[in-house]
Design a protein around this nucleic acid. Structure first.
Lengths: 216, 216
DNA sequence: GTCTATAGTCGGATAGAC
DNA sequence: GTCTATCCGACTATAGAC
């Protein structure tokens, strides 16, 4: 990952944090190095100094986001993968594991302060840049293959088949849509932010949906 | 909607078409008036002449997109709304109507050539600009309230309740996710485009999912 | 390592000939 | 209505003092 090795880690770090916010809010083209330096409280010239270019700062931000996201979901995914080693898990257990993953996504993604991260990832999804592979290889692939495995077993179809992949995405979509079109949903609900009640309700709806679809 | 009334409708039209493509591909900031004029095969100065500014051209493009999208779904939505006048529709019939709407979205959105339109709408969803209301008021609201009504009746909850709105979005998400993270899904499937088979499979999965969730 | 100053580029918008 | 030429502002990146 590019980036010169300037000794002052603090400045470098401030730029990455500021870059997360500004790139998230305005996208790569809409964000300017002036905004980022100003939000970070450092000099404009620090960007080329520490990262070489705006683009490389962007990639560094993407790396940081992946790291955060991984840390947030890794414990649960590892747990699920350990359980999956048992090839004879009950339907009920498989359902529970899937619901746990989806619930975590709801809590992580809709709680409020991480919208910036959502936005960053969404933009890469709709128009992949060079940073797309950073997300795909280190995040989507690992996280998603776990969900695919769960869905495949529940549906009784081969893991990693096209059908399993499509079904898994469709299941994830039930949650993902709230990240993607958050503003539309909020306006429809007549709110500025999701409430605790909304999130609880969503998790209940997801759980019921999974259980009626796969519970037997 | 803003824009001077220059007599040559053809030039105006070419700019809107080109704007659709270029704004869709690069976003508002990433797109340049030079690209758009060049793609339209007209002079750069025609943009301020016909629209006043880049931003107003963007809004005109948004209006055109809404118009296309409305024309594409209006016949089916009108049909569904006529059916909904009957307050005693069978579960089976309600399911069928919901599945019909979702299937239309699959056909419209994933067939290939309209990706540009998807992108345009998605960008507005994730970061609403002044054009957001154009979509929300004239599209999402009408289309979505029909789906909400269907879901509410199937779930036996009050139409326009928070729960109905959340459930309806969750149902729509099962399809919408394929628009939003198209590139990720395609990479996961190892393809460049969705095949006919993928779309058929997706529609079957959606139908089964709706029927097991709501079919009784 | 951090700063100011500025180079060099490219963007949207305008002026004015035709 | 369409064109060329150009203005002017904003951007990224660099040079070089401290």
């Amino acid at each position: 990952m590019g980036g010169r090795k300037g000794r002052d880690v603090a400045t470098r770090d401030k730029l990455i944090s500021a870059g997360m916010e500004v790139f998230g809010e305005y996208g790569f083209d809409g964000a300017t190095t002036r905004m980022i330096a100003s939000r970070a409280g450092v000099n404009l010239a620090a960007i080329p100094y520490y990262f070489g270019s705006k683009k490389e700062l962007y990639n560094a931000v993407a790396g940081r986001i992946v790291q955060y996201a991984q840390e947030a979901v890794k414990p649960l995914l590892d747990h699920v993968n350990r359980e999956l080693a048992d090839k004879n898990l009950s339907r009920r257990k498989l359902c529970d594991l899937l619901v746990e993953i989806l619930s975590l996504y709801v809590d992580l993604g809709l709680s409020g302060d991480v919208r910036i991260v959502d936005l960053f990832i969404l933009r890469e999804q709709i128009r992949p840049s060079g940073a797309f592979s950073i997300f795909y290889d280190r995040m989507s692939k690992y996280e998603h293959s776990t969900c695919t495995e769960l869905v495949a077993r529940l549906a009784g179809i081969p893991a990693e088949s096209d059908e399993a992949i499509i079904r898994a995405h469709s299941v994830l979509g039930q949650v993902a849509v709230f990240f993607a079109i958050r503003e539309t949903v909020l306006r429809r609900l007549g709110r500025k932010e999701f409430t605790e009640k909304d999130l609880t309700e969503l998790k209940r709806i997801i759980r019921e949906s999974i259980q009626t679809q796969f519970g037997k």
